[in-house]
């Protein structure tokens, strides 16, 4: 599971109000490089919950990866920024698409219901009495 998916996932357990963002607890994660596509990031960014993304990176022990506040778009998409090591867009790309959480859990912020991540796959299934 990448942090892009974490950003889209909520808990639907009975008693949850928003069930979002899920608290990430990662026991194991890996990074895999993929090509950066600025247009993709540009289209996606308005849909991204920045605070949830930042919280997820901090939960992985990467407090320096993303700033508390989202940088202005002019900075993120500045000409040539994608080629600059450590630029905002490179960091955002890395956070969203290159980090794969392999083992851990997602915890509902409202109910503390824990959803396991096993072999990279989060299991969001609820028991009948939880729906």
């Amino acid at each position: 599971m990448r942090l892009l998916t974490h950003n889209m996932l909520a808990s639907n357990v009975r008693g949850a109000t928003t069930g979002y963002p899920l608290k990430l607890e990662a026991a194991k994660w890996v990074t895999k490089e993929v090509d950066l596509n600025a247009d993709f990031i540009r289209g996606l960014l308005p849909k991204i919950d920045w605070r949830a993304l930042v919280a997820a990176t901090r939960a992985l022990g990467l407090p320096e990866l993303l700033p508390e506040e989202q940088p202005p778009e002019e900075e993120i998409f500045a000409e040539g920024a994608a080629d600059v090591e450590g630029s905002a867009i490179r960091r955002i790309h890395h956070a969203l698409l290159e980090i794969h959480v392999q083992e851990g859990s997602l915890v509902c912020p409202d109910t503390s219901r824990c959803f396991p991540i096993d072999k990279g796959i989060p299991n969001m299934m609820l028991h009948e009495d939880e729906v």
Binding site: L9, Y20, I121
Partner: peptide, 18 residues
Amino acid sequence: VHADVIVTDIVSGLEKHL
């Protein structure tokens, strides 16, 4: 190739933010 795979009922948990 890669896809993020999720165990869930249809799109439960994704419907709002997706």
